[in-house]
């Protein structure tokens, strides 16, 4: 058995059993964030997908892959969004290499 169950994505509302008001507030916020605004629903779905891949949440990846498709994105666009998120994540690691360089320079002649 895996710790991740595909059906749990559709059972999300169960998390509201012990704190319904907080769950309702969360869902209202979560859904409002995905509506058309200064950014389109399509752009927001792509941002959601990029973040989902970055935080490696299988539920979010499933949800935002479908959401991106249902908002008219294609796999080329979705893959570019995922590359950007991954590149930022890679860059965030790599820029810490400067700290290594600094540390090296401090102790080196």
């Amino acid at each position: 058995m895996s710790y991740y169950e595909e059906d749990d994505l559709h059972n999300f509302e169960k998390i509201g059993r012990h704190a319904p008001e907080l769950y309702e507030k969360f869902m209202a916020w979560y859904q409002a964030c995905q509506e058309d605004g200064a950014l389109s629903k399509r752009e927001k779905a792509l941002i959601g997908l990029a973040v989902a891949v970055t935080i490696q949440c299988p539920y979010c990846i499933d949800a935002f892959t479908n959401s991106s498709l249902e908002n008219g994105s294609n796999m080329e666009q979705m893959t570019e969004a995922m590359h950007l998120a991954s590149a930022i994540r890679g860059g965030a690691s790599l820029i810490h290499g400067v700290q290594s360089h600094n540390a090296h320079d401090k102790v080196s002649m």
Binding site: N66, L69, E70, G72
Partner: peptide, 17 residues
Amino acid sequence: NPVGAYLPPEQKSIEAD
């Protein structure tokens, strides 16, 4: 129509594409 098991996007938006 969607090429798979998902719903279509908003009509005017995909028409513009």
